[in-house]
Structure formats: structure tokens, C-alpha cells
């Protein structure tokens, strides 16, 4: 009885762990990007257009990510501004807020290496979500 109970609870534990991974993943995604906004943006009649938009968003994010790494303060302010508009449009609100801070710091001539690093890291995370979304679109 005890053994069964342990096995049962272990089994249950594994299931919970699978579910909670997925759940945590979804929670992490939803913390980074507003799925409703992204869905609405990608609700295009043509699957090819959807895929192409996903690809373009990722390309833009990667371009800005790269530019932030090498740019002078003035460039950082410009690209942070571009990032702000793009991320707000796709529903990546925390990244949009981060880019506001980055733009501000750059405009004020403050050192913003740490902020750039965090922003670049978050661009990675957002790109991963959109790549996942693009894969799902392709397989549907």
C-alpha cells in the first residue's frame, strides 16, 4: 500500500513536473510578450505572409541587437527608440519599457553597457518566442 502510494505520487510528481514546465514556459512567455497582441498582429489571411512577417520581426530585432552592441551613445538612443516602437507594436511590453530606459540613458549621455546587455538578452528571449510561434504557424 505504501509502495503503491509512493509510485503513484512519483508518477503524479512527474506529470506535475511536465505540466509545470510547460506552464512555467507559457507564464515566462506571457510575461515577455502579450500573446493577444502578437496573435492579432499575425492574424493574416495568408500563411506565407504570416511567416514572412515573423521572419522580418526577428530580423529587425537581431539587427537592432547587433547595432546596440557596437553603437555609440547617439546610435544607441536611435536604435532604442526604434526598438521601443517595434516591441510595443508586437506586444513585447517589458522590452518596450526597457528600451525607453535605454533611450533615456543614452540621450542623457549615461553609461548604459549594463542596460544594453539586459536589453540584448531580452531580445534573445523575445526572438525565441516569435521563432516558436513561426514554427507553430508553419506546422498548422
Amino acid at each position: 500500500m505504501d509502495r503503491i502510494s509512493v509510485e503513484h505520487s512519483q508518477h503524479k510528481g512527474t506529470l506535475q513536473s511536465d505540466n509545470s514546465d510547460k506552464l512555467n514556459g507559457a507564464k515566462a512567455d506571457s510575461a515577455l510578450i502579450d500573446a493577444q497582441v502578437l496573435d492579432s498582429l499575425l492574424s493574416l489571411p495568408d500563411a506565407a505572409l504570416q511567416a514572412s512577417l515573423c521572419t522580418q520581426i526577428i530580423a529587425d530585432l537581431r539587427r537592432i541587437q547587433q547595432a546596440l552592441a557596437v553603437g555609440q551613445l547617439e546610435d544607441v538612443a536611435h536604435f532604442a527608440h526604434e526598438l521601443k516602437g517595434l516591441t510595443a507594436t508586437i506586444g513585447a511590453n517589458p522590452l518596450a519599457e526597457l528600451s525607453v530606459q535605454l533611450q533615456l540613458a543614452a540621450e542623457m549621455g549615461q553609461a548604459c553597457d549594463a542596460l544594453v546587455a539586459v536589453t540584448r538578452g531580452q531580445i534573445d528571449a523575445v526572438c525565441t518566442i516569435i521563432e516558436g510561434r513561426a514554427r507553430r504557424t508553419g506546422s498548422e
Binding site: L41, L49, L53, Q56, I57, A59, D60, G85, L86, T89
Partner: peptide
């Protein structure tokens, strides 16, 4: 921004 061009134009 090319992706925003796509969003608005489409």
C-alpha cells in the same frame, strides 16, 4: 522599420 512597414502596409 521593415517589419512595421509590413504591418501597416498589409
Amino acid at each position: 522599420t521593415p517589419s512595421l512597414q509590413m504591418v501597416y502596409a498589409s
